[in-house]
C-alpha cells in the first residue's frame, strides 16, 4: 500500500513537472509537434490525462472520435491516423483558432453533463450502443453539432495534412483517398510554426 502510494506520489510529481514543461513551452511558443510528442508519451495522453484533459475527458474524447470516424474496415481509423495525439497537439497549439480549441474541450464536459442529465450515467458508463445514441442526440442540438464538427475537422486534418504534423502516418490518409500530395512537401524548418523564423533568418543584411 505504501509502495503504491509512493508510486502515485511520484507519478503525480512527475506529471506536475511534465505539465510545467508543456505549459512553459506553450507560453513561449516553442511547442512543436515533435517536442510535444517527446513531452507526452502516448500512454500518458490516452490513459492518465494530461495538462488539459483529465482521464475521464480523455476517455470521452477518444470514444467520440471513434464514433465520428470509426475503424469500420473502410480506410483508417483514428488510431491508424494518430488522430488523438494530433488533436492533443492542436489543443495545445496557440496558433490554432482559440475559440474552437476552447469549444473542443468544453464540449467534452458538456457531453458528460448531457448523459448525466438524460441517461443518469456518466458518458463512460454507457454501453457502446448507448454512446452512439448519445452522440446522435448531441448532433440534434446546435451546440453539439458545432462541437462534433470541430472534432471531425481535427480528425480530417489528421487524415490529410502532411505527416509532419503528426497525423496521416506514411500518408495513409492520402493513399486511402487516392490523393497525390504536392511537391515539395513540408519540412521541419518550414512547418507552420517555424517558417517565419526560417524566412527571416535568410534575409540579406542591409543597412537601414
Amino acid at each position: 500500500m505504501a509502495q503504491f502510494s509512493d508510486n502515485i506520489d511520484n507519478l503525480e510529481h512527475w506529471q506536475t513537472n511534465r505539465r510545467q514543461v508543456i505549459k512553459a513551452a506553450i507560453l513561449t511558443g516553442t511547442l512543436s509537434q515533435l517536442s510535444f510528442l517527446q513531452a507526452c508519451t502516448a500512454n500518458q495522453l490516452t490513459e492518465e490525462g494530461n495538462d488539459l484533459l483529465d482521464a475521464n475527458q480523455v476517455g470521452i474524447l477518444k470514444s467520440v472520435m471513434e464514433i465520428l470516424f470509426p475503424n469500420d474496415g473502410n480506410g483508417p481509423g483514428i488510431d491508424d491516423l494518430h488522430a488523438f495525439e494530433y488533436i492533443m497537439w492542436v489543443l495545445h497549439d496557440t496558433g490554432s483558432y482559440e475559440k474552437y480549441r476552447n469549444l473542443a474541450i468544453e464540449g467534452i464536459t458538456w457531453a458528460d453533463e448531457q448523459t448525466q442529465k438524460n441517461q443518469q450515467k456518466n458518458y463512460l458508463e454507457l454501453s457502446q450502443a448507448e454512446r452512439e445514441q448519445a452522440v446522435a442526440h448531441f448532433n440534434e442540438t446546435d451546440y453539439g453539432t458545432e462541437w462534433l464538427s470541430i472534432i471531425l475537422t481535427y480528425i480530417l486534418e489528421a487524415l490529410l495534412l502532411d505527416p509532419i504534423y503528426g497525423g496521416n502516418p506514411d500518408g495513409i490518409g492520402w493513399k486511402w483517398l487516392n490523393h497525390t500530395p504536392g511537391y515539395p512537401q513540408a519540412t521541419e524548418e518550414l512547418r507552420y510554426e517555424n517558417i517565419l523564423k526560417t524566412v527571416r533568418a535568410a534575409y540579406p543584411k542591409t543597412e537601414s
Binding site: L161, Q185, A186, R191, Y192, I195, V199, R200
Partner: peptide
C-alpha cells in the same frame, strides 16, 4: 509582409 524566397514555398496545406 515577410520575404519568402522560392525555396521557402512547399505544398503544405497547414501553412
Amino acid at each position: 509582409g515577410p520575404w519568402f524566397k522560392t525555396e521557402h514555398f512547399t505544398k503544405d496545406d497547414m501553412v
